[in-house]
Nucleic acid binder design. Structure first.
Length: 485
DNA sequence: ATGTTC
């Protein structure tokens, strides 16, 4: 795949399309990648990153992270920091799966203790954490109570016994974006979401048992601060979002924005998938308040799933979850828009930072990260493919260039359809088991779509973020068991 | 990603 001729190399990890690349660009578009990743980059990324650079109010650069690929409007991996006073909010810059995110949980068990019980463990998790399209959770809620979940996020879970107080401290924004307003959410969204708390979903959503091998620790001191203290320690990583609830909110507001964008606000974009409305408009503010409901629902979803995981481990190992050391490392979103203060040309300014398949990555000493991580920087959780592994990173001071944002995962290299043509789910499961990874799935086709060969090299992505100064590698985590949505 | 084309 050829890169555009106009693409300029700024440094070993920064590539830029100037404003002359496309009519209407207000700022240049920058892609973070090493030479190999940029040459393999999905061509759609260049066009989409340039389109994003046309959004009213965008500051400095439109960014795409090294795991970037073609998405709806924005690339997956896209970042846009927009002036809230003069600029827009765009659902395509957040994604359909609002607050899709990652949670990493510790245990004090080691691989040697878990291996003999692995099948039992994964089977129990598969049974107790509902997965797959249309799955329903065990938490039974009225529509009214669900609206409270949407406004309170993880705080609702604590109040109802699904979690530990420190879980909130170890979740981005304490597990609740302030200002969520359920009256801005359609009945249809509530209808789709109210029975989905505590469910994994489908696609690339998963729950994984992983091992931190000594040879895969890059930064031992930070690993210890993050709770990884023993050789071959077992951890649990999972990836999911706001299910049908967030999807419906995104769908509702995309339609509403399209109806007013040009006629009422005089905004035209290259791509109707970049539907947007002025942030300070009634439409923009309504979407912002509704989006926060989906953000909070997703935090609550992951919180209830954690509760279930602790129950499963406790039942199987006949010890209390706290005795098993099942505290969180962190929970971090990768599909949101948030008002944050950043330095722009030496001035502190409030910006609306859209991150779509991109992770907030605050550096050491910054406000907004847990006290215990003040010196190390924020934990960043990057999910790789279920065959290859994942990364725990830490935020770095160099993140200032990307509004403290880093990658979120491997990024697909081929379509789901293409992957499914190359391998059957049943065969993949057998192959993986031979290699020591026991996987259960709600869908054979869905499993095939997630084959390792359909994803970029996670090692290259993590390394590129480190070379770019956005985040540093702390530990590479190897999967041994996987529940696939 | 998604009651996978209300």
């Amino acid at each position: 795949m050829a890169v555009p001729a106009a693409l300029k190399k700024i440094s070993a990890t920064i590539w830029e399309l100037p404003v002359s690349y496309k009519a209407g660009m207000l700022v240049p578009a920058r892609i973070i990648a090493d030479e190999r990743l940029i040459n393999a980059m999905d061509a759609g990324v260049f066009e989409q990153a340039a389109n994003v650079a046309c959004l009213p109010g965008i500051q400095k650069y439109s960014y795409c992270m090294p795991d970037g690929h073609w998405g709806y409007g924005f690339p997956i991996g896209g970042v846009a920091a927009i002036d809230p006073a003069t600029g827009v909010i765009s659902p395509g810059g957040i994604g359909f799966d609002i607050n899709c995110g990652m949670r990493l949980v510790l245990t004090n068990l080691v691989e040697e203790e878990v291996r003999p019980r692995l099948r039992e463990l994964v089977d129990a998790l598969f049974q107790r954490v509902p997965a797959g399209v249309g799955s329903h959770g065990f938490v039974k809620l009225s529509h009214d109570e669900f609206c409270r979940v949407a406004e309170m996020g993880s705080r609702w879970c604590l109040k109802h016994g699904y979690g530990w107080p420190e879980d909130l401290e170890l979740t981005e924004e304490g597990g609740c974006f302030a200002g969520a307003d359920a009256t801005k959410v359609s009945q249809r969204a509530i209808e789709r979401g109210y029975n989905q708390i505590g469910t994994l979903g489908s696609g690339n959503h998963y729950l994984e048992i992983q091992v931190a091998r000594p040879e895969n620790i890059f930064d031992g001191e930070t690993a210890r601060t993050f709770g990884i203290t023993r050789p071959n320690q077992v951890v649990i990583m999972f990836h999911c979002g706001s299910r049908g609830f967030g999807h419906q909110i995104a769908t509702d507001y995309l339609q509403r924005f399209l109806a007013v964008m040009t006629s009422k606000y005089g905004i035209t974009m290259h791509d109707r998938e970049l539907a947007c409305a002025p942030f300070r408009s009634p439409e923009g503010q309504d979407y912002f308040a509704a989006m926060k409901c989906a953000v909070n629902m997703a935090f609550a979803n992951r919180q209830v799933i954690l509760h279930r995981i602790r129950e499963v481990f406790s039942d199987l190992f006949h010890r209390d979850p706290d005795d098993l050391g099942m505290g969180m490392v962190y929970d971090v979103a990768h599909n949101t828009a948030k008002l944050e203060t950043h330095l722009v040309d030496g001035k502190r300014r409030q910006l609306l930072v859209h991150r779509k398949g991109a992770t907030r990555s605050f550096g050491p000493g910054q406000e907004g990260i847990p006290e215990r991580y003040r010196e190390t920087g924020q934990p960043v959780i990057i999910g790789g493919s279920m065959e290859t592994g994942s990364y725990l990173l830490a935020g770095e001071p160099g993140g200032t260039d990307t509004f403290f944002t880093t990658a979120h995962g491997s990024g697909r290299t081929m379509s789901r359809h293409q992957a499914k043509r190359m391998v059957k789910g049943q065969k993949l499961q057998r192959d993986m088991e031979e290699r020591g990874i026991y996987v259960r799935t709600a869908s054979w086709g869905g499993l095939a779509e997630e084959a390792g060969f359909a994803y970029k090299d996670i090692d290259a992505v993590a390394e590129a973020t480190e070379l770019a100064g956005l985040s540093r590698r702390v530990a590479r985590l190897r999967p041994i068991g996987n529940v696939k949505g």
